[in-house]
């Protein structure tokens, strides 16, 4: 019955070995899907390459359904997994800043690591920027300490907040994702008519 390590079915000593293995799988999938190119990643915002949308959204809906089925089969105890805590206002602000950073920098941390691995200099500079950004945050933290901790709702799930059961969200996300896949395929066709290069 999972999760294996918190239930001590596998000892904690394996933790870091497993971390590396999972990281390898993650990095491989990211790079193999084309996320090691900032121009591919930015494509989702300009309509010439929706690979980010396809991979990301597919992963979310597969994982949502997967978690629910694993719980049903008794393989995973959903009450024991880590749910990201919600801090409403700081998270909204953080997401907005990250969104700007994403379009400017063309990367997010995970993808920038894979890009560095294959020799992309712009990814190296992006990561340097990450260090600077986090450092500035750390140094100026006392200025917005209270805001940072505000809006805490705890480790709430969508169900906790809305009262709507999880399958509805899995289904809803799936429908929206599938619709988006078909629609963006059409958009891509139109945008690519005018551009020679769209896959980098």
């Amino acid at each position: 019955m999972g999760p294996l390590i918190p239930n001590e079915i596998i000892t904690g000593d394996w933790n870091f070995v497993i971390a590396i293995l999972i990281g390898i799988a993650f990095g491989f999938l990211l790079e193999a899907s084309g996320f090691s190119s900032s121009r591919n990643l930015a494509g989702v915002f300009y309509g010439y390459n929706f690979v980010v949308l396809r991979v990301f959204f597919t992963a979310v809906i597969v994982a949502m359904a997967g978690l629910l089925y694993f719980d049903y089969f008794g393989w995973l105890d959903l009450s024991k997994i880590f749910i990201l805590p919600t801090f409403l206002s700081p998270m909204i602000l953080g997401a907005v800043i990250m969104g700007i950073g994403f379009v400017m920098g063309g990367f997010c941390p995970g993808t920038s690591f894979t890009a560095i691995a294959i020799g992309k200099m712009d990814a190296v500079f992006f990561v340097i920027g990450l260090f600077i950004g986090i450092f500035i945050f750390g140094e100026s933290f006392p200025l917005f300490k209270d805001f940072f901790n505000s809006g805490s709702m705890g480790n709430v799930t969508l169900t906790d907040v809305t009262g709507i059961a999880a399958p509805w969200f899995a289904f809803g996300f799936t429908v929206v994702a599938l619709a988006a896949f078909w629609v963006t395929a059409e958009i891509e066709k139109k945008v690519r008519k005018n551009t020679k290069e769209y896959k980098f």
């Binding site: 597969v62 999880a166 799936t174």
Partner: peptide, 20 residues
């Protein structure tokens, strides 16, 4: 193929409703 996959994914999502 994509049509088939779309339907498959929808079925999987709908299936989560029937988990007792």
């Amino acid at each position: 193929n994509y049509l088939f996959l779309t339907i498959l994914m929808l079925l999987l999502a709908v299936g989560t409703f029937f988990i007792p």
